[in-house]
């Protein structure tokens, strides 16, 4: 019975099915907000208010012809989308959501899960690089190198910004950090700088404007995913959607006080807080133009990293004062 429950946990809630449904919903929300900010309509006709548009896109892509370039490394080329999806779905399991099966709790919530989550979120970047490199297309390769170049920029500020609330809460467990801040909501205020830094770095991690450099369509066509089509591209798109859910969930759990209370209340908090984070991400997307990769690295090290260090300092001082 426990095995069955674990399987249900992995596949239905909060595993693949939930992540698929919520991921596509978040994509719809992002697209709709982005469109309305630009005075457009956004998805309108597939389902009520176009809610099913991302799902329709996904299934349409699944039905499309799947082309593997002759020169590409076939096993790697085929494996990468599946691995990518698996990685972000695993990261999704680490979210401190309402857990209907307490016996599986030890598996997904433990001291140090925040570090595991951060590393699982770094993997899609590497997968994007490998995808670009293994497809042997010149545009994909440029995209791949840009992915890595950007990674060196935003990863360090992101880690510092995300870990500073953890230092204040004195815990490496996401659920405990959330609980700590729910008990003392005023302590969320010193983390504002870290919140902004983390938001911008997540934007870079998700490769959205102004950091959509690895797949800047007007420069290098499809970037890393130029050669991908059909099912594989559908998997990559789903991967991006789930990554959006997981990273916005991470920010919500750490900087916005997590999700507590009764199960339904916790779930509602999760939805509201992640959507708030996604709204901010969409706003950044609508607000900026794409910058160059050298500008990203300069920006990350000259502005983001000092701000993250400042955040760490503030947190350490406050922690000293609290004692």
């Amino acid at each position: 019975m426990a095995v069955l429950k674990t399987i249900l946990y992995l596949l239905v809630y909060p595993g693949l099915l939930f992540l698929f449904v919520y991921g596509t919903f978040c994509e719809w929300f992002d697209r709709k907000v982005y469109a309305r900010l630009q005075n457009r309509m956004g998805p309108t006709h597939t389902g009520r208010w176009g809610l099913l548009q991302p799902v329709a896109d996904f299934f349409k892509l699944m039905a499309k012809e799947d082309i593997v370039p002759d020169a590409a490394d076939k096993p790697l080329f085929t494996l990468l989308p599946i691995v990518g999806l698996a990685v972000v779905a695993t990261a999704g399991l680490l979210m401190p959501l309402w857990n209907p099966f307490p016996e599986a709790a030890g598996l997904i919530s433990f001291q140090g899960d925040i570090i595991v989550l951060l590393y699982l979120l770094s993997l899609p970047t590497l997968i994007a690089f490998l995808a670009g490199w293994s497809s042997t297309n010149i545009f994909s390769q440029i995209g791949g190198t840009r992915v890595l170049t950007m990674l060196f920029g935003y990863e360090v500020p992101l880690f510092m910004a995300v870990l500073s609330p953890a230092i204040l809460a004195n815990s490496w467990r996401i659920a405990e950090i959330g609980a700590f801040y729910r008990a003392r909501p005023l302590l969320l205020l010193p983390n504002v700088i870290g919140f902004v830094v983390a938001l911008i770095c997540v934007q870079a991690k998700l490769e959205r404007t102004p950091f959509d450099i690895p797949h800047a369509e007007t420069e290098i066509v499809g970037g890393t995913f130029t050669e991908y089509s059909g099912k594989k591209l559908a998997f990559f798109r789903l991967m991006t959607d789930i990554e959006l859910v997981v990273s916005s969930g991470l920010i919500a759990a750490i900087f916005l006080g997590g999700f507590g209370g009764s199960p339904i209340l916790a779930f509602l908090q999760f939805v509201v807080k992640t959507l708030a984070v996604i709204f901010l991400l969409s706003l950044i997307r609508a607000l900026t133009s794409r910058i160059r990769v050298d500008q990203v690295v300069a920006f990350a090290w000259k502005t983001m990293a000092p701000l993250a260090v400042l955040q760490l300092l503030i947190v350490i001082i406050i922690k000293g004062l609290l004692k």
Partner: peptide, 21 residues
């Protein structure tokens, strides 16, 4: 920073300029 922000937010709850053709 973010000079476009007021314009964007102003349009968030406005009717879209496009027509449902």
């Amino acid at each position: 920073v973010a000079v476009f922000l007021p314009e964007l937010l102003r349009h968030l709850f406005k009717k879209p300029a496009t027509v449902d053709y």
